[in-house]
Write a protein that binds this DNA or RNA. Structure first.
Lengths: 391, 391
DNA sequence: ACCGGTTCCGAAAGCGTTCCCGATAGATCA
DNA sequence: TGATCTATCGGGAACGCTTTCGGAACCGGT
């Protein structure tokens, strides 16, 4: 029980910070400040964390300087092979793991790559991340995954975290809300390279890895037309993303090529949430003159739409055919299987982090941003075979 | 062009390390070592990374000491409100982000939690991770995800990385290969808490978060029996994992309760890969007296098995009924839908990291490990309704 | 015997924080 | 009018590592 040294009050004592290792109190009764030693400091703060072996521990037991230990561990020249051997052996015996925090502080690196994705529930981003890890891990880098949850605000928060973590480079795929990449400017200023993949804005001066969305969409829609669909709707994505624009353009041009009219009322936009995609589908299927096919921005949207169709007892593909984008594993499991455009997910991850490493190693002046465009592949399943059963 | 200072050779010059800021060369022609200053050091090493604002920058422009800046930023007492105000404003203006490496080094923490999962392609682990993040992020912690890829060797490697990163705590779900948790001992020695979830070994002295696997399996198998199945096979998991044992036991006891014989030949083991699960299914369906139901360790295995059944034109659920475990989103999309036992994934993540934080804040002596057992829920879909269409 | 060169190593600065201590000026009290 | 307190701040060590620099010991050649 703490008593006020002035008025002996015990109930109106509030803590007022810790100063010079002593607890400062404030008696709200007589408005008097006073300090008392932290007798139970050990009980309050429990430094349960123990010491982990450091370079200095090794140096001491081997009677050498820490410089020498560092040299041995880092494989530098300028060291006697026997000394090195002894140090390496002791390090192994003690299971020494260098403190990456200290290493990073000294070298001004962190050996981590930040990666910002909108979500990782669907398989697309996990596969990309795995591809990136397969390149990064052997090089001694690890990956800090941030999830923006399709929220621009969280994405901004993520950039701050990655900035504070002093990541050496960033892979980013934007949310459907992200209007610009202002919040990434700080990385540019700090000389930290950013490579965008999959979800990119236009007018961004950075390296990018995308797939040929235009051509993929074109192939997908043309495939629907060839299967006898003539009234093809499109569930498009948010207008800020290039994938939305390019896939929409592919859709439009495929229609035009085959002399089908482009009906604006058949183009609806999802904000990439399940609910939004479901709403889009409901809207399309409630139209008086229902479309006979839907080309969807991505597989999750297509799956949501197919579920709506099933619920409404609309036959797939006889009444409405579907084509998605990405070849999620679930696309193959649906009944009927969802026709979709496969993306080389693993290669996207590898290519993106490859570009990132290129930029990290390049000198700022000579480096030129590049955009790599990978190819999609049409995977035909039953969902799109509109004419087959009809004929 | 580098010339040998002895023989003037230019083509046989090899670099031999950098010593005292000078490049050391070796002429392989006359076997002579020599050093030359690094005239183009700037061009070779491109320190493209720029300076990021530090506490010292703020201190200098405001003519105060770095201690004062630190105090202001950390919200300590012992500082003039006006001084604090000025510092906070300048920090915001400069978009100051504290260097977490330096912070961690000074405080002997890293503000990161390591999480080791066998994979994150299926949705189970991503959902758990998201649950963990929802607790960790608001507390200022971020999460370093390591993927063991169902490999014990990689899992060991992961523990080293997390050790080097000086994570403050660990969430782990073991691989199907992991025989023991020896490689986690070092965390215990270092006073870094580990909480296991989902995939745990027995004889581990640590906090754990699991679901009631026994009861879930029991419910699932009993459900099959109630639907008229009498020859129920089980695709079990690796014997090292508790989930395998408990789900197997639930399967066995459900059979016993209903006076069904436990046929060892109907119990096959998957190593948790798709291929292995597929092989298991093929084996079961090639038996002379084919089972009329399969209870599978988890949904990915169940889905693989269902695909084999479909390929063999075995009708689901009329010929063979299925029950899985986990309620993967794909389970609902299959045709017929996969009956399964839903796990509270988000809650698992939240509970696990909650236990972790408890242990991080507790004093070593008083802390007691706890095991939290969460409940499963049977989600009935068509895959298990064996008797319904038969009758 | 001297000298240039090589080999190996230790000392020390620095990375950006935190935090403990001591210092100072002003306020308050007896 | 000292003496004690208070409010505020600066100095500097420490965290574990890298890296530069200088120096001692030793080598072979003249």
């Amino acid at each position: 029980m703490i008593k006020c040294v002035k008025c002996n009050e015990v109930d109106a004592i509030a803590k007022a910070g810790i100063v010079r290792g002593k607890q400062r109190y404030h008696c709200e009764h007589c408005d008097y400040y006073f300090t008392l030693p932290l007798v139970d400091a050990a009980a309050e703060k429990t430094p349960t964390r123990k010491h982990q072996t450091t370079i200095i521990d090794i140096a001491r037991t081997l009677q050498v300087s820490k410089s020498t230990v560092s040299r041995a561990l880092r494989g530098h020249a300028d060291i006697n092979p026997q000394t090195r051997q002894a140090i390496l052996e002791l390090a192994k015996e003690l299971d020494y793991q260098p403190n990456l925090l200290a290493y990073g502080l000294a070298k001004n690196v962190s050996l981590t790559i930040g990666i910002i994705v909108p979500e990782f529930i669907n398989s697309f981003f996990p596969y990309v991340i795995i591809g990136a890890q397969e390149i990064a891990n052997p090089r001694g880098y690890h990956i800090l995954i941030c999830q923006s949850n399709e929220s621009h605000a969280i994405e901004i928060e993520n950039t701050k975290v990655l900035m504070a973590s002093r990541v050496d480079g960033i892979l980013a795929s934007l949310t459907g809300e992200t209007p610009d990449v202002e919040h990434f400017r700080k990385f540019e200023k700090a000389g930290i390279p950013v490579v965008y993949f999959n979800r990119v804005c236009d007018n961004v001066n950075a390296s990018k890895v995308i797939v040929d969305d235009y051509e993929g969409a074109f192939k997908g829609v043309e495939h629907l037309i060839e299967n006898g669909c003539s009234k093809i709707a499109h569930i498009a994505g948010p207008p800020n993303l290039m994938i939305s624009k390019n896939r929409l353009q592919g859709y439009v041009n495929a229609l035009k090529k085959h002399n089908l009219t482009v009906d604006e009322s058949l183009i609806v936009r999802t904000n990439l949430t399940t609910k939004s995609a479901t709403d889009c589908a409901r809207h399309l299927f409630s139209m008086a003159d229902r479309p006979d096919a839907v080309f969807c921005l991505n597989d999750p949207a297509a799956i949501s739409a197919m579920l709506v169709a099933k619920e409404l007892k609309i036959k797939i593909p006889d009444d409405v055919a579907f084509v998605g984008f990405s070849d999620e594993p679930a696309a193959a499991l649906m009944e009927p299987g969802l026709t979709t455009l496969a993306q080389p997910t693993n290669e996207i991850g590898k290519t993106a982090i490859g570009l990132l490493f290129d930029q990290m190693n390049a000198s700022r002046e000579t480096f030129e941003h590049v955009t790599k465009i990978l190819q999609t592949k049409l995977i035909v399943r039953k969902s799109s075979l509109h004419g087959v059963t009809k004929i």
